[in-house]
C-alpha cells in the first residue's frame, strides 16, 4: 500500500535532479554529469522491468496502473510542449484525446482490427483537428485563447454525445483487443505495457530533443517575447500552429492508446474537467520543464490511487495539494529540487 507512494517519491527525488542537467551552470549536473545523463535510462530500465518484478512483490495490479500513468504522461507531455515551451494556454486538450479515442472506435466499427492502423489513425485525425482548431484559436490571445480552445473541446464533446452509432452518452466498449501483429500478440500478457512504454519513451525523447533544437528555441522565444520574435523575422503564427498540431496529434495518440487500455471510450474523456486536470498535472509537475509532465502525472495519479484506497473523500486532499502548490511551489515539482541546488 505504501509502495506506489514511496516509488513515486524516489522518482521525484531523482528525476528532479535530472532537470538540472538542462542548465549546465547548475552545480548538481556539474558535479555528477554522468549520473544526470544516465538517469533517463535508469528510469526507463526500472519501468521496463516492472511487469517482470511486480508479481514477486504482489504488485500485478499496478502494471495496469503504470500503463495508464504512461499514457496520461504522453498526453501531458504534449500539453507541456505547447503550454510550457510555447506559452499557449490551451484548455481543451482533452478534446484531442477524445478525437483519438473515437478514431479508434470508428476504425474498429468499420471492421479494422490493426492496433497500429488505429493508433496511427488517432494520431493523424487528431492532428488534422488540431490544425483546424489551432488555425482559428491562435488568432486570439490570453483569456480568449483559453476560452476558445475550451469552446472547441466542448463542441467535440457534444459531437461525441450525439454519435449514437458509437454509443452516444453511454460510450462504446471495445470487446476484442486490437491486433498488434504476430510478433507481439500473445508473446507475454504484458506486451501492451511495453508497447506503451516504448511509445511514451519515444514521445518523451522527441519532445526533449525538440526543446533543444532550433524549433524549440524559437518556441520559447515566442513564449517569452512574441513581439520581438516577429520583429526578428520569425513566422510566429506558423511556428505556433506547427506546435499546436504536433501536440494535438500526440494527444490523439494518447487517446487511441487510452481507448485500448480501457477497452472503452466515452464522451466523459473530453469533459472540460479532464482538460483542466491535464493542465493542473502539468503545472504541478513544472511548466516548461523537461520532467514536468511525467512528474506531475505520477504525483497526481499515485496520490489519487492511494487516497481512493483509503477513503471515498479523495478529492479534497488533492484540492488542498493544489492550493499548497500555488502558494509554496508555483514553479512546480521539477523546479523544487533545482531551486534547492541553485541556492547552495
Amino acid at each position: 500500500m505504501n509502495r506506489p507512494a514511496s516509488d513515486s517519491s524516489r522518482v521525484a527525488a531523482t528525476t528532479g535532479a535530472a532537470a538540472v542537467a538542462e542548465h549546465p551552470h547548475q552545480p548538481f549536473a556539474v558535479r555528477f554529469p554522468g549520473f544526470a545523463r544516465r538517469l533517463p535510462w535508469l528510469v526507463l530500465a526500472i519501468l521496463a522491468l516492472f511487469p517482470l518484478l511486480a508479481p514477486t512483490f504482489g504488485l500485478e495490479y499496478y502494471v495496469g496502473f503504470v500503463r495508464r500513468l504512461l499514457i496520461v504522461a504522453i498526453a501531458a507531455s504534449s500539453l507541456n510542449f505547447i503550454l510550457g515551451y510555447g506559452g499557449m494556454a490551451a484548455l481543451g486538450h482533452a478534446g484531442f484525446i477524445g478525437v483519438g479515442a473515437y478514431t479508434v472506435v470508428a476504425l474498429v466499427e468499420a471492421g479494422f482490427s490493426s492496433a497500429w492502423l488505429a493508433w496511427g489513425g488517432a494520431l493523424v485525425v487528431a492532428g488534422l483537428s488540431a490544425a483546424l482548431i489551432g488555425a482559428v484559436s491562435l488568432r486570439t490571445r490570453g483569456v480568449y485563447f483559453i476560452m476558445i480552445t475550451l469552446a472547441f473541446a466542448q463542441m467535440l464533446y457534444y459531437l461525441a454525445v450525439s454519435l449514437r452509432t458509437y454509443g452516444g452518452d453511454d460510450g462504446y466498449g471495445l470487446y476484442t483487443p486490437l491486433e498488434m501483429g504476430v510478433w507481439l500478440d500473445g508473446v507475454h500478457p504484458d506486451v501492451f505495457y511495453w508497447v506503451v512504454l516504448v511509445i511514451a519513451a519515444l514521445v518523451f525523447a522527441c519532445f526533449s530533443r525538440v526543446a533543444h533544437s532550433r524549433y524549440g528555441h524559437a518556441l520559447r522565444g515566442i513564449r517569452d517575447n512574441e513581439t520581438r520574435m516577429v520583429a526578428l523575422g520569425y513566422p510566429v503564427y506558423r511556428l505556433k500552429l506547427a506546435g499546436f498540431i504536433a501536440a494535438g496529434a500526440v494527444a490523439g495518440l494518447a487517446g487511441g492508446l487510452l481507448a485500448s487500455h480501457n477497452a472503452f471510450v466515452s464522451p466523459a474523456m473530453m469533459h472540460w474537467t479532464q482538460s483542466a486536470l491535464l493542465l493542473v498535472m502539468v503545472m504541478l509537475g513544472g511548466l516548461g520543464r523537461r520532467w514536468g509532465a511525467p512528474l506531475g502525472v505520477a504525483l497526481w495519479l499515485v496520490l489519487e490511487e492511494t487516497l481512493k484506497m483509503h477513503t471515498d473523500y479523495w478529492h479534497w486532499p488533492l484540492g488542498v495539494l493544489l492550493l499548497l502548490a500555488v502558494f509554496h511551489a508555483p514553479q512546480g515539482l521539477a523546479a523544487l529540487s533545482e531551486r534547492r541546488e541553485g541556492g547552495r
Binding site: W316, L322, V326
Partner: peptide, 26 residues
C-alpha cells in the same frame, strides 16, 4: 492572494477549490 497572479495559477488554485467543494457537499 490570487489577484496579482497569473491566470494559469488562478485556474490551478480555483480548480483545487472545486475539488474541495465537491467533497464537502458530498
Amino acid at each position: 492572494r490570487l489577484y496579482r497572479r497569473d491566470h494559469l495559477v488562478q485556474v490551478l488554485a480555483t480548480f483545487g477549490i472545486i475539488l474541495i467543494a465537491d467533497d464537502a457537499v458530498k
